[in-house]
């Protein structure tokens, strides 16, 4: 049996393997360097960055449910400038393939942030977080409107260097995610990241109120895996772009499921809290699984019904 080619191409950028970390679940990629080498992953997607630092939401911020996790962190982050100053040089030095997750207060700000990024080296792409449910000014409004998505993606493409990848992360909390993916594709996105968290709510029976002050929170973990698979399938039938599957991955079988429904790469998220080295384990396990199944590349797991991407 020949070896497996795990590499994946997102627009102009080739990643050595299709296992990435999901935004918000592995910090800025430097927090576990004593245990694993972040450069061994296909890419690290950073915690979402905003133009100015954000303090995020008050407590409580997480609630574990039986098969998933509700979070209301509220995009707490160090801000783009501090990231570029304090984190990016270390990532670059370590050879980490870095995708910056970006969020903005208004649609024009995405392009402004990417323009700022062009003055720095050491990153391979950006992922537009158009869909965080946990902030008042909400990416969700951008993220639910195909017209706004087209506008934002177009403005970012105009300033993005030709050798960097543009990923657009979509919310599942809409009637037709395919419409959003088509808008992103039309405006020049290189890949669709799918999905962000599912809007959820938990109740405190003693106080008879929602647990989280903002009521709504983002649901992630194993419970949302079938939802994510359905959305990836829907997007795969609507666009020709590579899809980065996200949602509830905790085993190599879950990774394979995403490949079948049309993903070319995946992001591991919530499960990293329970197993900070899981993404690294999955790189190895994916290679072994593909060999066992006689596949020369992840693409060969893709369901025939979807055709070639």
């Amino acid at each position: 049996m020949k070896g497996v080619d795990l590499s994946v191409q997102l627009g102009p950028v080739t990643f050595a393997n299709p296992i990435f970390t999901a935004s918000g679940t592995w910090g800025y990629g430097l927090d576990f360097v004593d245990l694993v080498d972040p450069a061994a992953l296909g890419a690290v997607v950073t915690k979402t960055l905003t133009a100015v630092p954000r303090r995020g939401n008050p407590q409580p911020r997480v609630r574990e449910l039986r098969h998933g996790l509700l979070n209301s962190i509220g995009l707490e982050n160090v801000g783009l400038q501090a990231f570029l100053r304090e984190k990016l040089p270390a990532l670059r030095e370590r050879g980490v393939r870095t995708i910056l997750s970006l969020a903005a207060r208004e649609s024009g700000e995405f392009a402004t942030m990417v323009a700022e990024l062009t003055r720095h080296e050491g990153w391979q792409g950006v992922e537009l977080n158009l869909s965080c449910p946990n902030v008042a000014e909400g990416g969700l409004d951008f993220g639910r409107d195909p017209f706004r998505i087209r506008e934002i993606v177009d403005s970012v493409r105009q300033v993005l260097p030709a050798d960097r990848a543009l990923l657009v992360k979509l919310t599942p909390n809409v009637t037709s995610i395919a419409d959003l993916a088509v808008a992103a594709q039309d405006a020049g996105a290189h890949a669709i990241s799918c999905i962000n968290t599912v809007v959820g709510l938990e109740v405190d029976l003693e106080t008879r109120r929602p647990v989280f002050p903002r009521a709504f929170a983002g649901y992630s973990g194993p419970a949302i895996l079938p939802i994510a698979l359905a959305k990836v399938w829907e997007v795969a039938r609507a666009v020709d772009l590579p899809i980065v599957g996200i949602g509830g991955i905790s085993s190599v079988e879950d990774v394979l499921r995403f490949l079948v429904v049309g993903a070319g790469a995946v992001q591991v998220g919530t499960a990293l809290f329970a197993r900070p080295t899981l993404a690294h384990d999955l790189v190895k396990e994916l290679e072994e699984s593909l060999i066992t199944r006689g596949c020369a590349s992840p693409m060969q797991m893709r369901c025939e019904e979807l055709g070639r991407s």
Binding site: G24, T25, W26, G27, D31, F32, K47, R55, G56, Q59, P60, R61, V62, L69, N71, I73, E76, L272, F273, P276
Partner: peptide
Amino acid sequence: EEQMGCGAGVCRACVVDLSGDPGQR
């Protein structure tokens, strides 16, 4: 004691505000 997600500072679940204005989180 605070409810934690990761134990390593990455999930930002267990934040607390330090004294001062605005006070580091």
